[in-house]
């Protein structure tokens, strides 16, 4: 794992600092999401896929799932964060180019949910990363996920 960490350590284009003013406005029309499962029971993952299916059709708003964190604008995190996956989610967060958003899908990521007594949990995600949108529910319905995206847009407008 040491090799993996060194291999994917990132440097910015502007000599280590990101000086350009972050412009979130352009994210509104095309949000590319990278989906990361941090110990979820798979229910939230299936609901994310249901959001992209023809009935709700999130591609209307330019939302699409990408396979690489380097292409992503928004990080969809499902599940409570286990100790094993803590390093990986931090690395993936570093790999996403700025400007970036983090969305928690499901109650587990926000509060540890039913696993709150477990010794294997590294805690709610917002103790590790800056989280922008919480979508509670076990699992949240696709309508709730779309509402979360709309909330993210409102947040982008305020910035």
């Amino acid at each position: 794992m040491v090799y993996y960490y060194r291999c994917y350590n990132v440097i910015d284009n502007n000599r280590g600092t990101y000086v350009k003013k972050i412009n979130y406005k352009h994210l509104k029309r095309s949000l590319w999401a990278y989906h990361m499962n941090t110990g979820s029971c798979n229910a939230c993952d299936i609901e994310i896929l249901a959001t992209l299916m023809p009935r709700y059709d999130a591609e209307r708003f330019g939302i699409k799932l990408v396979g690489s964190p380097r292409h992503a604008d928004v990080l969809l995190v499902t599940g409570t964060v286990t100790e094993k996956i803590k390093d990986k989610i931090l690395q993936v967060y570093q790999q996403v180019p700025k400007p970036k958003l983090v969305m928690i899908i499901g109650s587990c990521g926000a509060t540890k949910g039913v696993f709150h007594e477990s010794y294997a949990m590294a805690g709610p995600l917002d103790t590790l990363l800056p989280v922008d949108v919480y979508v509670p529910g076990c699992p949240p319905r696709p309508e709730a996920i779309i509402y979360g995206v709309a909330k993210a847009w409102e947040k982008l407008e305020e910035l």
């Binding site: 291999c7 990132v10 440097i11 910015d12 284009n13 095309s30 380097r70 790999q95 180019p97 400007p99």
Partner: peptide, 20 residues
């Protein structure tokens, strides 16, 4: 015009070059 929006957005994003 979705591909155009994608291009515009990508132009505003940070470009990361891996150390390797």
């Amino acid at each position: 015009l979705q591909p155009v929006y994608d291009i515009i957005k990508l132009m505003y994003k940070q470009t990361i070059i891996p150390v390797t």
